[in-house]
Design a protein around this nucleic acid. Structure first.
Lengths: 215, 215
DNA sequence: TCGCTTTTTTACCATTTGGTAAACTTACGA
DNA sequence: TCGTAAGTTTACCAAATGGTAAAAAAGCGA
């Protein structure tokens, strides 16, 4: 048995192993996020990581395992801002803080955002179960919290899930559609403008009392 | 010269040609929108279209030409709702109508939405010039109209481009992230809820007068 | 029905790509 | 410094995939 760190679930990984796995995942993030799963090749990832293709397959069982590893790592980080919402906090500020954090993530981790978008766009073929088991319970829980806030009159009436969709859509748009945003907003500080805009958008929606407009 | 309808720019195309090109594009839309450019194969498209692969290459020069054809057709249809905004109309209703139309497109043409999203996600490699020459002028123009409305006090102060981004993001989210939306909203009429939500979201943002919240 | 054009099919082909075998090299504890 | 395990490289392979050549089969006007 000459080699096999790949499926060696037990034992502590060596320093080299740690370093190279990290390199590979970093390279894979870069490549998968710009070309999608199918569009990415092991050769590209290898080149980006500064390793040979067989060497990469020494650390991961295959292309798919790399992708899945990336995706699973991602979801946790991705949901952290949602988990940080405090049911005991001030409703409006909790939600506005969430919007701000999501927008920051879109600016600071655009590749992660695009990796996720790519996966969902194609029907979440490698993530479906995870969405079900991780995302859904968390969203159900958060929705209940928001519903409670609404019933207490601390928030304007709003459908919690559609609210979350709006927040995700608007914030992630700056990462996922960067190519389009870039064409339409040259040489401007996109983030600052976006921040002000989303602040207004969601604060107006959620502030209780002043009902605007008529159906 | 036995065959060559592919690049035969002149002459009127035969009925068969018309029918088969339509079939191919329909099949290609289905396949490209779910798997992305690279993830789609000519064999899949051929199977979906009920034609053989070489037969497909009799009508199109290659995979890329099919994709580009689809993309170009798409952009026009995609921008129609934006073109339909009437600078002479009632500002708030014009924009709310635009939101409604975009949401309808997301529901009725999800594949087109995903095809577009796929292309932009990957940096618009086959669409960059088109965005520049078609999308940008139209957006600049629309932005000027909206700015005018704001200056006339008919709309709450808003950055026109960020407003458009928000509208695109929120409406297209229902098509592009359908896999995620489906997990979180089972057995519900998503569209109706979305319509009400977006109505409230954008009407509150845009209605002039009642300034909500504080920075 | 003939003859020519358009369409379609049957074989292929070259490249790309995910993956493997096995030799070779490096790291490192005893 | 020696031996073993960990890590890396070289040389491949089979399948998938975009694409082509050329023969066969429809279509169709006269």
């Amino acid at each position: 048995m000459p080699q096999a760190p790949v499926a060696q679930a037990g034992r502590k990984p060596s320093r080299i192993q740690l370093r190279n796995r990290k390199r590979i995942l970093e390279a894979a993030l870069e490549v998968f996020s710009t070309h999608g799963y199918r569009g990415a090749t092991l050769d590209q990832i290898a080149a980006e990581a500064g390793l040979s293709k067989p060497n990469i397959l020494y650390y991961f069982e295959g292309k798919e395992e790399i992708h899945v590893t990336l995706l699973n790592q991602l979801l946790d980080a991705w949901l952290a801002p949602l988990r940080a919402i405090d049911p005991q906090g001030e409703p409006l500020e909790e939600l506005m803080g969430y919007v701000g954090r999501k927008l920051e993530m879109s600016r600071d981790l655009p590749r992660e955002s695009r990796l996720f978008a790519n996966e969902i766009l194609q029907g979440a073929p490698r993530m479906g179960p995870h969405l079900e088991s991780v995302l859904k319970p968390l969203v159900d829980q958060t929705a209940a919290v928001i519903d409670g806030w609404v019933r207490q009159g601390k928030l304007a009436p709003v459908d919690p899930r559609h609210l979350l969709f709006s927040i995700w859509a608007t914030t992630q748009h700056y990462a996922d559609f960067e190519a389009q945003v870039g064409v339409l907003m040259r040489d401007v500080d996109v983030h600052t403008g976006a921040s002000a805009h989303l602040e207004a958008l969601f604060r107006r929606l959620l502030t209780p009392g002043a009902t605007a407009g008529s159906g």
